[in-house]
Design a protein around this nucleic acid. Structure first.
Length: 213
DNA sequence: CAGCGGATATTCT
DNA sequence: GAATATCCGCTGA
């Protein structure tokens, strides 16, 4: 028989570990977003690790700025950034504090509140596409800059929580190079996903944009 | 599915 | 001024 997902929150200690341990361990966990119309729950199927130390792909690589401030704070908090002029992406900060590591949440399966997610993701052709990609995931869950710095481990009234869910069998975890990361940051296989899961986003190598004429 | 161009604003140099 | 942890709509296979 299949155990039902554990709805208790992940403790902060879960995130107070090296990011390369936390990232694969997040697969299968449950992210719950409380909206005015009801909860949307997502089972994580794809993540990427970013280390604040010696990782040119990380927003924290060149030190502390106004944007990446949250990455330098306590583990278990949400780091939201705005990119390409249109999109938000969300991360969970990992420890130890001051190291500025985080896990980018890249894709997942909506397991509750799909009718609420569909309204925000009108271009999705089916439910597997609702959160297939980091900006799609943030859009589906109604995540924007206003949630930057939110504590995902807090108990009680929070707009966003991370729960135990059902841990993915380590034998089912795959890894490979990170998507859209350029140069030396692309060498590490720090993208993790659930094998054969239809909600995982397709891999795209980094392509520098051509200049506009 | 792959490959492309375009849209868009913030961030850092 | 240039780059960007992206997505969408289109074409073609």
């Amino acid at each position: 028989m299949i155990a039902s997902p554990d709805r208790t929150p992940l403790p902060r200690e879960f995130f107070d570990r090296p990011v390369l341990e936390v990232a694969p361990d997040l697969l299968g966990r449950l992210l719950v977003r409380d909206t005015p119309d009801g909860p949307i729950a997502l089972r994580l199927t794809e993540v990427e690790a970013y280390d604040g130390q010696n990782d040119p792909g990380s927003h924290a690589y060149r030190g502390r700025t106004a944007r990446n401030e949250v990455m330098f704070g306590a583990p278990g908090h949400v780091y939201v950034y705005f990119t390409y002029g249109m999109w938000f992406c969300m991360n969970l900060v990992c420890g130890p504090e001051g190291r500025a590591s985080a896990v980018l949440l890249r894709a997942g399966e909506i397991v509750e509140g799909a009718e609420l997610a569909r309204v925000r993701r009108l271009s999705a052709r089916n439910d597997k596409e609702l959160a297939k990609g980091p900006a799609r995931l943030a859009t589906a869950l109604d995540v924007d800059r206003s949630l930057n710095g939110t504590d995902a481990c807090a108990t009680g009234d929070t707009p966003l929580r991370i729960l135990h869910g059902t841990q993915v069998d380590p034998a089912q975890v795959r890894s490979g190079p990170r998507t859209g990361v350029s140069g030396d940051g692309a060498v590490h296989p720090w993208r993790y996903w659930v094998a054969d899961d239809p909600t995982v986003s397709p891999y795209r190598a980094h392509v520098p944009r051509r200049r506009r004429s």
